[in-house]
């Protein structure tokens, strides 16, 4: 059940911009409003936009449910693994083991209002990415499951 050419062209033009906006929200989660959950929801909205324009059958062939299921599990595993590394280093669970070490995302940041640097935040950007991947998979998967379930009933 695909929509008219106008809707399809508009969805084609809008899709990359929504996608890039979602990734921006995820990656800049420790500097600007937003974070993993919000960015993942925005990316899932982009996938729902494609489904609304092209119909379920055309999209389900490209974006399979198996791939999304693996994406979701991978995000959750990455999130827990980031927290577990702190345990291996001798600190508490969820300890921010990257902050202030000078490694990736480890630059110290000054106190007070400052424009911010992407290379700060310790484990927060990593956890943002993991949660973003998980939420993107989960919310798209819910919509795809419901569509595949109601496909024959309708």
């Amino acid at each position: 059940m695909r929509m008219s050419k106008v809707v399809r062209t508009a969805a084609d033009i809008l899709f990359p911009f929504v996608l890039i906006f979602g990734f921006y929200i995820v990656v800049h989660g420790h500097l600007t409003p937003g974070g993993g959950f919000q960015g993942g929801a925005v990316i899932a909205t982009a996938i729902v936009l494609l489904i609304a324009a092209y119909g379920y059958d055309a999209i389900a062939r490209r974006i399979t449910k198996d791939a999304l299921r693996n994406t979701e599990a991978l995000g959750l595993i990455a999130f827990i693994a980031t927290a577990l590394v702190a345990l291996a280093l001798g600190a508490g669970f969820f300890y921010n083991w990257l902050a202030g070490t000078g490694l990736l995302f480890g630059m110290p940041v000054g106190f007070g209002p400052n424009p911010g640097d992407l290379n700060t935040g310790g484990t927060i950007p990593l956890m943002n990415l993991a949660v973003g991947i998980e939420v993107l998979g989960a919310l798209s998967l819910i919509v795809l499951y419901m569509l595949s379930g109601t496909q024959e009933a309708a």
Binding site: H30, F94, V109, G122, V131
Partner: peptide, 29 residues
């Protein structure tokens, strides 16, 4: 100072209250 993130909300959600975020991710799963 302690987390290095400028967005205090994200600092609280992912660092000071990490267990809540873990529960939220599990609930979604």
């Amino acid at each position: 100072e302690q987390t290095g993130g400028n967005n205090i909300v994200t600092d609280v959600v992912f660092d000071f209250r990490g267990f809540d975020t873990l529960g939220e991710a599990t609930v979604l799963f």
